[in-house]
């Protein structure tokens, strides 16, 4: 475990490069709220990076800036060395609450991205079949989202993102609204998916367990203003299916918790 090592020696492999991002929100009454304060973060190609921190640390805001949905007050985001100018299907996004479209069937939801870029109907069908199979929901192709459980909806959201062929996955507490059983199942599925394709993942969560289980590195943030407090490397062996029982798991967990305990208490208290 190495702490506070933000820059990586192998700079060529940096895939997503967040440089001194600051974000100010005007809160009315002339006072500005500093949501993010000069945040630096690098994710290397094929790396699984989690961002954890108590509420108010700006972790979701940071993710939306990387997605190109919010414009930062200061700093820049580079992907493959080029500054981003807006949202792009190459940076896929999965949100916490089902953002899949309720007026589209499961299959139509998965086909959304390809349809937007003008992929032919027949090709779309095979893409849908492939990604629905990947998330294990082929049987539900013609269902509407309202007929599905929360966990199924999130799997559709993941399939919808996969169908756009992104090289970066941006995930904003994708399992945050699920019950703990569904959550563990989806964590395992995501790990399998990632271990096969090795895409770059930026994963926002408030669950330390989840971050330790999934990540190569964990960016620990502190709130008000949102800052990177520490970067923790997770050197647990993969695959991680049995990781929860290792002593190292508990040690990492305890370390991260002690790093953010103080601020979390302040935020909650």
């Amino acid at each position: 475990m190495t702490s506070a090592a933000i820059t990586h020696p192998d700079a060529a492999a940096v895939h997503v490069d967040v440089r001194r991002i600051s974000q100010r929100f005007s809160s009315g009454r002339g006072r500005d709220l500093l949501a993010l304060d000069r945040v630096d973060l690098q994710a290397h190609r094929g790396e699984f990076v989690s961002i954890v921190g108590p509420s108010g640390c700006g972790k979701s805001t940071l993710l939306y800036i990387i997605a190109g949905l919010l414009r930062s007050s200061d700093g820049e985001v580079l992907v493959d060395g080029k500054p981003i100018v807006g949202p792009d299907p190459d940076r896929g996004l999965v949100l916490q609450n089902s953002s899949i479209f309720p007026w589209r069937t499961v299959a139509e939801n998965v086909a959304f991205g390809p349809q937007m870029r003008g992929v032919a109907e027949s090709e779309r069908r095979s893409l849908v079949a492939r990604y629905l199979d990947m998330v294990g929901l082929s049987k539900f192709a013609n269902f509407y989202p309202r007929e599905l459980s929360g966990g199924m909806k999130q799997r559709i959201a993941i399939a919808q993102m996969l169908a756009c062929g992104p090289s970066v996955f941006l995930m904003d507490e994708p399992f945050g609204a699920l019950d703990s059983l569904s959550r563990e199942v989806l964590q395992d599925q995501l790990l399998q998916l990632w271990e096969r394709d090795r895409k770059t993942v930026l994963f926002v969560t408030h669950s330390i367990d989840e971050a330790v289980l999934l990540s190569d590195r964990i960016v620990v943030m502190s709130p008000l203003p949102g800052r990177v407090k520490e970067v923790v490397r997770v050197d647990l062996p993969r695959p991680r299916q049995e990781t929860r029982t290792l002593p190292e798991f508990g040690r990492l967990r305890g370390h991260i918790w002690s790093a953010i305990r103080q601020e979390t208490m302040e935020v909650i208290g």
């Binding site: 949905l69 299907p89 949100l95 589209r104 959304f112 937007m116 919808q160 941006l170």
Partner: peptide, 29 residues
């Protein structure tokens, strides 16, 4: 219209026109 529907569509490559036709109108219908 839920902001997250719009964000979801934008990150899936929808243009402004597609956003109106495929997201805003069906959601508001």
């Amino acid at each position: 219209v839920d902001k997250f529907f719009i964000w979801n569509a934008l990150t899936k490559g929808a243009s402004q026109r597609q956003l109106i036709w495929h997201v805003v109108l069906p959601a508001a219908l």
